[in-house]
Measured scan of single mutants.
Amino acid sequence: RTVKALYDYKAKRSDELSFCRGALIHNVSKEPGGWWKGDYGTRIQQYFPSNYVEDI
């Protein structure tokens, strides 16, 4: 599953992803609480806010 970032996001913790608008995040798994995990660049299975992305 791949999603596309709608907005920039700067990680606030070491287990979160930072990305820019338009970024493609791969291998996404839905987690409870509005935070999902995914791969972006060299960061593997890190958290990001689900309301910052859309399915593609």
Rank of each mutant, 00 (worst) to 15 (best):
R1W: 15
Q45C: 07
G22L: 00
C20H: 15
P32H: 07
R1S: 13
K10E: 11
K30I: 15
N27F: 00
N51Y: 10
R43H: 14
F48M: 01
F19W: 02
K4E: 09
S18D: 09
F19I: 06
D55C: 11
P32Q: 14
K30C: 12
T2L: 07
W36M: 11
Q46G: 15
S50G: 12
K12M: 13
K30R: 13
T42K: 09
E54R: 11
L24R: 07
P32K: 09
V28Q: 03
F48P: 01
K12E: 09
K12Y: 05
G38P: 01
K37T: 07
E54C: 09
Y47Q: 10
R1L: 15
N27E: 10
V28K: 04
L6W: 01
R13H: 08
E16S: 04
S18V: 01
K37H: 07
I25V: 05
S18N: 04
A23Q: 04
F48A: 00
R21K: 08
D8R: 05
P32N: 15
R43V: 07
E31Q: 12
N27C: 03
E54V: 08
V53A: 05
E54M: 07
Y40N: 08
K12R: 12
Y52N: 04
D55T: 10
A5G: 01
G34Q: 12
R1G: 07
T42R: 14
T42S: 14
H26F: 14
S50M: 15
D55P: 13
H26I: 12
E31N: 10
Y7K: 15
Y40C: 12
G41Q: 09
Q45R: 01
A23T: 12
A23R: 03
D8H: 09
C20W: 05
K10D: 14
H26Q: 13
K10N: 13
R1E: 12
E31K: 11
Q45N: 08
R13S: 12
V53L: 01
Y52E: 00
W36G: 04
G22K: 09
K30Q: 09
A11C: 02
E31M: 13
E16C: 14
K30S: 12
D15H: 06
S14F: 14
K12W: 06
E54F: 13
L17D: 06
L6H: 02
C20G: 12
N51E: 15
W36L: 11
A5M: 00
L6P: 03
Q46L: 13
D15S: 14
E16A: 05
T2R: 06
L24Y: 14
Q46D: 03
R43P: 01
Y47P: 01
W35G: 04
Y52I: 12
A5Y: 01
V53Q: 03
D39Q: 00
Y9V: 00
Y47H: 05
S14H: 11
T42A: 12
Y47K: 11
E31G: 15
N27Q: 11
R21C: 11
E16G: 06
D55E: 15
F19A: 03
G22E: 06
K30P: 15
D39F: 05
I25M: 01
K37I: 07
V28W: 02
A5H: 00
A23F: 07
N51L: 08
S18M: 00
V3I: 03
A11E: 02
E54S: 07
D15K: 05
F19Q: 03
F19E: 03
K37Y: 07
I25R: 00
Y47N: 08
W36T: 01
A23G: 07
K10R: 13
G34P: 14
W35A: 06
T42Q: 08
K30G: 04
Y7A: 14
A23K: 03
S50F: 10
G34T: 14
Y40W: 03
L24S: 04
T2K: 09
Y40T: 08
K37W: 01
S50Q: 06
Q46P: 01
C20V: 14
R43C: 11
K4R: 09
A11T: 05
L17H: 04
R21E: 08
T42G: 15
I44F: 09
I25F: 04
N51T: 13
R13V: 05
H26M: 12
Y52A: 12
S50P: 09
K12P: 01
S50Y: 14
F19D: 03
K10F: 07
R43N: 15
V28R: 02
S50T: 06
G41K: 13
V28G: 03
S50E: 12
W35T: 08
W36F: 07
Y47R: 15
K4Q: 10
Y40G: 02
G22F: 02
Y9G: 00
P32D: 12
D39A: 00
E54H: 08
K4S: 05
D8M: 04
S29F: 15
Q46F: 08
S14V: 10
S14Q: 14
D8Y: 04
D39K: 03
I44S: 05
D39S: 02
R21G: 07
T2D: 06
E31Y: 13
Q45V: 01
C20D: 12
L6Q: 05
L24M: 09
C20N: 13
F19S: 01
Y40K: 15
Y40V: 09
A11M: 05
Y52D: 00
A11P: 05
W35I: 04
F48T: 00
D55Q: 08
Y9N: 05
G34N: 15
R43E: 13
I25L: 06
V3M: 13
D8C: 11
R1T: 15
E31I: 10
K37A: 04
Y40H: 14
G41N: 15
Y40L: 14
S50H: 10
D55L: 05
K10G: 06
D15A: 10
T2M: 09
R21A: 11
T42D: 15
R21F: 09
E31S: 13
K10T: 13
K37R: 12
K37S: 05
T42I: 13
Y7G: 06
G33C: 11
W35V: 07
F19V: 01
C20Y: 08
T42F: 10
A23Y: 12
T42E: 15
T2H: 04
D39R: 00
L6E: 04
Y40E: 06
W35P: 04
R43Q: 13
E16H: 09
Y7D: 08
V53D: 02
Y52P: 01
C20M: 12
V28S: 02
G41L: 10
L17M: 14
A5N: 00
K30A: 09
E31L: 13
A5D: 01
I25G: 00
K30M: 12
H26Y: 11
K30E: 13
L24P: 02
N51M: 09
S18P: 01
D55I: 06
H26R: 10
R43K: 13
S18A: 02
K37C: 07
A23S: 10
G38I: 02
E54N: 09
I44Q: 08
E31H: 08
N51P: 05
Y40S: 08
K12L: 10
Q46Y: 09
G33W: 08
E54K: 14
E16R: 05
L6R: 10
